[in-house]
């Protein structure tokens, strides 16, 4: 009965939403504010990848808020899954789990530096090629994930993650505030922009995206380490209740 009501409700909703969505023309030129961005990005800012220019410069304040949300998610996850010290031995607590096979371990060791290199390449070239801080950071986090699932004794030091994260966040906000000293707006470019399609171009865009890359990598590595180090059984303290 409940299922029938839900399907009816979704049918009515879906009909009207589809009516609205299918009246949007597909594949035709609908640009208005994007024209300004497509013009300004290579001309004034000298950033080849317009998506990077939009994310970091034209809507940089938005990205600062987003990085804050990610930081809050990582912190909230840590506090939700917080456990007392006596259970936490510092090792990766998959003790009961069987050891990963030798092939996975050797492959993980072999691939880990290459994955780090790919991640660093992606976020350093964020203003020239597809990719950027978010993608590069996530790639680096998957590299650490490979080590976390391969080795039982591998553990990430959360204090150093917090330091990397803090330094990257301060760099992001500090570059924005430095712009105010030079008489610009918050997060407006104040450095020389260089030549289009060269590595040192785009002023502050490249520096901010490198900072975002470090911040995202450390936050997601922290999230993965926290999630993977949960003990499987139900807490003893709750069985008494």
């Amino acid at each position: 009965m409940k299922r029938i009501i839900t399907i009816l409700l979704l049918g009515v909703t879906g009909y009207f939403v589809a009516d609205a969505v299918f009246s949007i023309p597909f594949g035709v030129d609908k640009l208005n504010i994007a024209k300004e961005y497509l013009l300004n990005s290579p001309e004034e800012l000298k950033v080849a990848n317009t998506v990077t220019a939009v994310v970091v410069n034209f809507r940089g304040f938005d990205t600062l808020g987003e990085v804050t949300v990610l930081f809050l998610a990582a912190t909230g996850l840590g506090s939700i899954l917080f456990r007392r010290r006596k259970y936490h031995t510092g090792l990766n607590p998959q003790r009961e789990a069987p050891q990963a096979s030798r092939i996975v371990q050797v492959g993980g060791k072999l691939l880990f530096p290459l994955i780090l290199l790919l991640g660093a390449y992606v976020f350093i070239h964020g203003h020239l090629t597809p990719g950027g801080g978010f993608q590069g950071g996530v790639i680096i986090a998957t590299g650490y994930l490979l080590l976390l699932v391969s080795f039982r004794k591998f553990a990430v030091k959360h204090s150093s993650l917090t330091w990397v994260e803090a330094v990257a966040g301060v760099t992001f906000a500090g570059i924005g505030l430095t712009g105010l000293v030079f008489g610009k707006d918050f997060l407006e470019n104040f450095l020389p922009t260089g030549v289009l399609n060269s590595l040192l171009s785009g002023g502050i865009v490249g520096i901010i995206y490198v900072a975002v890359g470090f911040k995202v990598a450390s936050e997601l590595t922290g999230i993965l380490d926290t999630m993977l180090s949960i003990k499987v059984e139900v807490d003893e303290e709750n069985e008494e209740n």
Partner: peptide, 19 residues
């Protein structure tokens, strides 16, 4: 949209699945 494709491939396929 190559930027979004990279993000979706790493986050949607790898990280969301693992958590």
């Amino acid at each position: 949209a190559p930027d979004v494709a990279l993000t979706e491939a790493t986050i949607g396929v790898a990280l969301t699945t693992i958590i």
